[in-house]
Nucleic acid binder design. Structure first.
Lengths: 356, 356
DNA sequence: AATAATTATGTGTTCGTGCACAAATATACA
DNA sequence: TGTATATTTGTGCACGAACACATAATTATT
């Protein structure tokens, strides 16, 4: 147990004053080559870790951080991510942070484009992005790269970008696992209906594509002969869904299994309930309030959780520690894929009853 | 956003000095009735929250904490709990904590009794208990109650005690869920072998009894007609297990499903592998290193995780915040029951790759 | 009433970092 | 060489809680 090394200790060892050490530690410039090398030499020797508590007190400057994600609705997926972000800020209540949030319609590529173009012009120290459309996201990221502004992804990551880090589920594995779970509770060869969201201006989002690929790959690898029916599902024009659903269930085919690749599983569950359709097994994404209710009622058999609070929390925390303490950052962060049933759902914590 | 209230602000409002406020906040005594009431009045008005960073720096006194749990072996369940405890201490590195750890043999009631009697006589500020045998634990807790020493349970809680808090899985639900999961992947009416640990001086531990009850209740509730074979399993005399296992598999009965109610599932998996017994589905407890390996190899189908790192971490963190800041404590803390398969196991984080 | 003992209250120091500002040194240019 | 400017370095203060210690006020004792 070696004694704590302080800035003043390093200064003495390097034969300079604490101010110079501080300038080196924080890359503030105005340090002679000689002094810098001497200090860096000492820093290599000793394992200096700033006392985070003292740092927290002494911090004077403020940071401006922008967050952009799909729109937040009550009890839904993106609300959990935003809760996580807010929770991280509470941990750093003494740090002066100016937070600006811009949301876009995740079912409309034009809304996303417009929002991202607006954001690109703003002053900021860092950016958190919840991406949906690859092309638009890449454009925004390029501008950030040019301006040397760090950004972190939540929910999913986008190729051809250079984020400081990302927090995301492995959506391919997610789809793979959904296939394994649903096939374990339905008869062999049973038909499976897959619901996918319809979007304006773009066929489909990042995450859904990957999940679908994982799903079909599982069936292929395991030589499952289930017939897969892909059904469109519109969030923006919900009146269309009645039609899709009634067409599905009025056909001759039995549909004993439903898979929803996004967090809107409760919509389908509601339809089944109002139309008294029984005996359908369902697997869906995310512990939204409505999904949890449907799970508890037995309408949904499995929910897959992807730690949205943790994603939001970690992305903000990572960003702040990077900005303030220049802490090293782990780039790839794949979050847990929690398998939730009506039995274990009550133990899954949110920030209202626990603290990460 | 109201401005932060400091001790000195409270002092001014109450017309006293900061020293007196400090004495009231920390119950240090030597305060006149008049002053105490004035200060308490102000404290009711304003929402004073000490700046935890400054508190952390200024702390001078030290705390002695004793931890007693079953013995820790490498890569096993209790090691994770201890890792969690250590991790909490790292967060409070500036607090002077004297930690003493006493482990006992969880398969031998006499070892537990001896350890607990020794501990009962020691000086300490608080105690963390990983209980196994109810009777012995109650005795220890009574002595702690008399001495006004707070204690927290990890892994399970014991009736007729008054802990400050407990962090535990709901073991009944755990058994219930294991029954649901295993029956979903085996044919109806298939036989199920349940393995239970043998203990010296006591029929069985706290947790196993509850899990067994949950398991059988699920089968009963759902009118499952599976034949249940309860098999003893000795950790202390492993040479007996060969005998139990060979007797099981050489009988006429098919055994397509195995349930292990503790974390030693890998032992059974190994036996199956060396004896080339195939087609057995298995569900077991805990992400021990050996179990995870067996899961990845496909020998185990489901593992149930119970957040051991989080349990250890939270119990120590709760204790410290209670001791140092007199923070209010949530007593009942049921942890997640994670359903783990070979697909999602890689995403479950330990402290080596993430920070809660 | 005078002194001792007890209790109550106020003051000052400590912790280590972040940063502002002053001081010192080096470089540029006439 | 002297002055102006730029660069480098050192010093000092603030942050706010915890506690040690000194001083003031009250109560007990002779």
């Amino acid at each position: 147990m070696q004694k704590k090394v302080r800035i003043i200790d390093i200064a003495k060892m390097a034969g300079v004053s604490k101010g110079t050490v501080d300038r080196v530690l924080h890359n503030r410039g105005n340090v002679s080559e000689t002094a810098r090398i001497a200090i860096e030499h000492v820093l290599d020797e000793v394992n200096y870790k700033p006392n985070i508590h003292v740092s927290a007190i002494s911090l004077k400057r403020s940071y401006k951080i922008i967050v952009t994600t799909p729109e937040v609705s009550l009890g839904a997926y993106w609300e959990s991510i935003h809760n996580g972000i807010r929770h991280a800020l509470e941990e750093y209540e003494n740090v002066k942070i100016e937070l600006q949030i811009f949301t876009y319609n995740q079912y409309d590529i034009y809304s996303c484009r417009q929002t991202f173009e607006k954001i690109a012009g703003f002053e900021m120290d860092a950016l958190i992005i919840g991406p949906t459309f690859p092309e638009e996201t890449i454009n925004l990221c390029k501008k950030m790269d040019d301006r040397d502004i760090p950004y972190i992804f939540v929910d999913s990551t986008i190729d051809s970008t250079a984020p400081l880090a990302f927090y995301s589920a492995d959506h391919y594995v997610c789809g793979f696992m959904m296939a394994k779970l649903i096939t374990s509770i339905i008869p062999d060869h049973a038909n499976i209906a897959i619901f996918q969201a319809v979007r304006t201006g773009d066929k489909s989002a990042n995450t859904t594509v990957l999940r679908k690929k994982g799903f079909t790959d599982y069936l292929e690898n395991n030589r499952c002969s289930n017939l897969i029916l892909t059904i469109p599902f519109s969030v923006t024009e919900p009146e269309d869904n009645e039609m899709y659903l009634s067409r599905l269930f009025q056909s001759q085919r039995e549909v004993p299994a439903i898979v929803v690749l996004n967090s809107r599983g409760n919509f389908i569950a509601d339809y089944l309930e109002t139309n008294h359709i029984k005996g359908v097994r369902m697997i869906c994404m995310d512990l939204t309030a409505a999904n949890v209710e449907a799970l508890k009622k037995g309408q949904i058999d499995y929910l897959i959780g992807q730690e949205p609070e943790y994603q939001g929390f970690s992305s903000m925390k990572t960003l702040l520690e990077y900005l303030i303490f220049k802490s090293p950052v782990k780039k790839q962060n794949y979050v847990q894929l929690d398998i939730i049933t009506r039995e274990n759902v009550v133990f899954y914590k949110r920030f209202n009853n626990t603290v990460y």
